[in-house]
Design a protein around this nucleic acid. Structure first.
Lengths: 126, 126
DNA sequence: CTATTGGTGCGAGGAAAGTCGAACATAACC
DNA sequence: GGTTATGTTCGACTTTCCTCGCACCAATAG
């Protein structure tokens, strides 16, 4: 039913480009746990990342630097890993850089409406 | 618009009985923060409490003992306070016991669909 | 080859959160 | 009065999480 996308408050997910690298290890759709997903989203920085990825993605996926977060790189690694291990994002290694995108289909299938909450969130003023 | 309740996957909230004590201090509806709410729900015990309160409430509100949680009382105080301070539940003091119920209207107004996720959650086997 | 780039992983420090016992408070009941 | 039932507060312990510096790695450009 692709008509469900019309009611979503965020753009439809982009198709996987041909030749994209394999995703990094991640929980399967059936293994997603709501507590873990909510815990990963309870950090404002990570919530902001997921929201940016969900709303403003002009490409299929984005490297860590795209978000303009003023934190050391090891902190970004930490948070992106937390998001991936909770199942919120999928990461692929493109040569040097590691790009991420939201697992829209999996999350909508398991937790319908969750991403709408993220999309509606208003981040606090920077 | 009470017809929205018809589509909710949980029972409609009960009206406040006349003569109920005043609620304990809690954040106002406009002060609810999504990160805090998600953080409060990221604990399985608290998620279970909110879900039980949402789905199986045969009364307006319930004391802590009603949930049958096998933890010391000081731990329960801790978790119920976390839920109240995040804005998920409202607590009232009835003589000796403190009873809780989910702030359905406030949460639906600020984060529509969030409680549906909680209602759909399947707690892990005990 | 070397330098640059976009990251990882480790480990330490600190902050936040969960766990729980012990002592206390208060209402209800006998 | 004394006891019981419900729940609080405090303090301590433990665990988990966040933050970040530092060393390191692999791919690309020159």
């Amino acid at each position: 039913m692709p008509e469900a996308a019309a009611t979503r408050p965020f753009p439809a997910p982009r198709p996987v480009p041909a030749g994209a690298p394999e995703p990094l290890p991640e929980p399967a759709r059936a293994e997603l746990r709501l507590e873990a997903v909510l815990g990963a989203l309870s950090d404002p920085l990570r919530l902001r990342v997921v929201r940016a990825l969900l709303m403003e993605s002009e490409a299929f996926d984005h490297p860590c630097g795209w978000f303009g977060i003023d934190r050391p790189k090891s902190s970004l690694t930490h948070h992106f890993r937390a998001l991936r291990e909770a199942g919120l994002i999928r990461q692929r290694q493109y040569g040097l850089e590691r790009r991420s995108h939201v697992r829209v289909d999996d999350l909508e299938a398991r937790f319908p409406g969750l991403l709408a909450l993220v999309a509606a969130w208003r981040p606090p003023a920077p």
